[in-house]
Simulated scan of single mutants.
Amino acid sequence: MYIRHSEDIWKDYPELAAGVLYARGIRSSGVSVDMHTARFESVARARLAGNAEGEFPEIQAWRRAFSRMGLKPTQYRCAAEALLRRFRKEGALPKIHPLIDLCNAASLAFAIPIAVFGLQKVSGYLEVRHASGKETYATFAGEIEHPEEHEVIFADQEGRAHARRWTNRQSGYSAVRNETTSVLIVAEALHAGAPTDIKRLTDQLGEAIGTVWAVDPRSAVLDRLAPRFDF
C-alpha cells in the first residue's frame, strides 16, 4: 500500500507539505492519551487567547486554497479550523477514540488538518487527486455521495473517496473504530514554514503514539521531490 499526491496537486499547490504516519497495534481500550491531549490543548488555548482561529496563518492558507478550489471558505472549512472553532466556543472536544482524540488535539495545537484512516477499509492505495465525478463517498450516516468533478479527494484503488473537499470532511467508511488496528495518519499544510511545522507535528505525534500504544510508527514528510510513502 502507499499514499501519494498526484502531480496535478503538486503543480497547483507547490507550497504543500504533508506528514504521514503508519502505525499497527492500535487499540481503543486500556490506553490513556490524556497527558498528551492536555499538552496539545494548552498550546491551542494559549494561541486562541491571542487571536481567533481565522487569523492563524495556517488557517488563512487553507482558506485561500478553498477559494482557489471554488469553495466558500466560511461554508466549507478545513478540519483544523472546524475543530479550533468548536474548541474556542465550547472549551473542549468530544471523546471519540483515543487515537482520534490525540490527533484532534495535535490538530488544535498546530492548526493543521489531520486525517486518520482505518486501513482495513482502504483498497490498494490512497491518492490525493482531482475527482472524475464517478467516485463514491460514504457519509457517517451511511449515505452515498459522488464528489464533484475536479474536487480534491483522497481516492483508493476501487474509486472510493475517503475524504471530500480535500481537508474538509472524511468518509465514515474508513473512520477509526474500536476494532481498528492499523492506521494511516496524514497532516497537510500550505502556510509559510509548513515543512518545518509538519516535521514537528509528525515527530510529536509519532512519539505520543509510540508511548501510548508501545508501537513504532513509521513516518515521512512528503513534498514534490518525494511524493510517495509506501507502507
Rank of each mutant, 00 (worst) to 15 (best):
H5P: 06
A111W: 00
T202K: 07
E145Q: 12
P113S: 06
L190R: 04
R39I: 05
I96S: 12
H5K: 14
R224V: 12
M69S: 07
I26G: 01
K95G: 00
A155P: 03
R64Q: 09
W213C: 06
T139G: 09
V122S: 03
F110K: 10
Q60N: 02
N51Y: 12
E158Y: 12
V152A: 07
A138S: 13
S67C: 10
T167H: 14
G54A: 13
R45G: 07
D12W: 00
R169E: 13
A175D: 04
W166K: 01
A115G: 14
E15H: 07
S6W: 01
A214C: 11
F40H: 11
F154T: 04
G193A: 03
V176M: 09
E7F: 00
A111T: 03
R64M: 04
R4G: 04
E127W: 06
N51I: 12
R165Q: 14
P227L: 08
E151Y: 05
Y2L: 09
T139I: 09
I26L: 05
K134H: 13
V212P: 07
L83H: 08
L99I: 15
F117C: 11
P147A: 00
A131P: 09
L16C: 04
G54S: 14
E143H: 10
Y76D: 03
K11M: 05
E143Q: 12
G70K: 00
R177A: 14
A208D: 13
H150M: 12
T167D: 12
K95Y: 10
I59R: 09
V221A: 08
L99C: 04
H162S: 06
T196F: 07
H5M: 14
K89R: 15
A61W: 02
N51R: 15
E55P: 02
V152G: 00
Q60P: 03
R160L: 12
E158I: 02
P147C: 01
F110C: 04
L48D: 00
W166N: 08
A80P: 02
A46E: 15
H162K: 07
A214L: 13
G133M: 08
S67Y: 08
R4W: 03
D216P: 06
A187C: 01
E148R: 15
E53C: 14
G30P: 09
R24V: 11
M69D: 10
S171R: 08
H191R: 01
E188F: 01
W213R: 03
L225S: 14
S67P: 00
P147L: 09
R45A: 14
S171M: 03
G30N: 10
R218M: 13
G118R: 09
G142H: 06
H36M: 07
I209F: 02
A18W: 00
R24G: 13
E53Q: 01
S29Y: 11
W166P: 06
D8M: 07
E188L: 10
H36S: 12
L184Y: 00
A106H: 12
L102F: 10
K134Q: 13
E41H: 08
G172P: 02
Q170P: 12
G172I: 08
A49N: 11
T202A: 08
G50K: 13
F140H: 12
P113N: 10
